[in-house]
C-alpha cells in the first residue's frame, strides 16, 4: 500500500493507506482523530471540514494521498496546550452555537477560515452565505451566526498582537 506523510496538529505521521482512502478516513481511522465527523456521502454537510495548509477543506473530498506533505489542522488542534480554547470555540460556547455537537467541529473550522479570510469584517448576510457548505440541524444557525460575528474582532485583535 502507498504511504502518505503529513503533519497533523503539529505532529508528523507516515501512514499506509489504500489509494481510495479519504483524508477524513485517514484522520478518523488511522490517527484516531475522531473529532472530525462524517455526516454525508456527497460532500454537502461540512461536518468533516479541516484546515489543509491553512485553508478549510472538506476532508471527504480529498484523498489521503493528496495530503502528502500537507500541514493539517483538525478540531483537536485548535485549543492551546493548556486547554485555553480558540476564540471561535469560546464564542460558540458563549453564544450557545452548538447543541448535539456533531456538525460543530466542521462548523468551527469553516468559521475560522471565513473570519481569517475577511479581516475587513463580515456582515450577518456574509456570514450566512459563508456557511453554505455546512449543515446544522439543531440550532437554526441563529446562534452560530452570532458566535462568528463575536469571534471576528477577537480573532483579528489577537492576530494584530
Amino acid at each position: 500500500m502507498p504511504q502518505v506523510t503529513l503533519t497533523v496538529n503539529g505532529k508528523q505521521h507516515t501512514v499506509e493507506v489504500e489509494g481510495r482512502t479519504l483524508l477524513v478516513e485517514l484522520l478518523r481511522e488511522k490517527l484516531g482523530l475522531t473529532g472530525t465527523h462524517i455526516g454525508c456521502d456527497t460532500s454537502q454537510c461540512g461536518a468533516c471540514v479541516v484546515h489543509v495548509d491553512g485553508i478549510s477543506v472538506k476532508s471527504c473530498t480529498q484523498l489521503a494521498l493528496q495530503a502528502d506533505g500537507a500541514n493539517v489542522t483538525t478540531i483537536e488542534g485548535l485549543a492551546a496546550a493548556d486547554g485555553t480554547l480558540h476564540p471561535m470555540q469560546e464564542m460558540f460556547r458563549e453564544h450557545h452555537a452548538l447543541q448535539c455537537g456533531f456538525c460543530t467541529p466542521g462548523m468551527v473550522m469553516s468559521a475560522i477560515d471565513l473570519v481569517q479570510s475577511h479581516p475587513e469584517g463580515l456582515s450577518e448576510k456574509e456570514i450566512r452565505e459563508g456557511l453554505e457548505g455546512n449543515l446544522c440541524r439543531c440550532t437554526g444557525y441563529h446562534n452560530i451566526v452570532k458566535a462568528i460575528a463575536a469571534a471576528h474582532p477577537l480573532m483579528h485583535a489577537k492576530a494584530a498582537e
Binding site: 473529532g35 478540531i75 470555540q89 455537537g101
Partner: peptide, 11 residues
Amino acid sequence: DVRFLSGKGNY
C-alpha cells in the same frame, strides 16, 4: 460544550 468543541465527543 468544551468536549464537543474540542473534538472530544464520544459518538
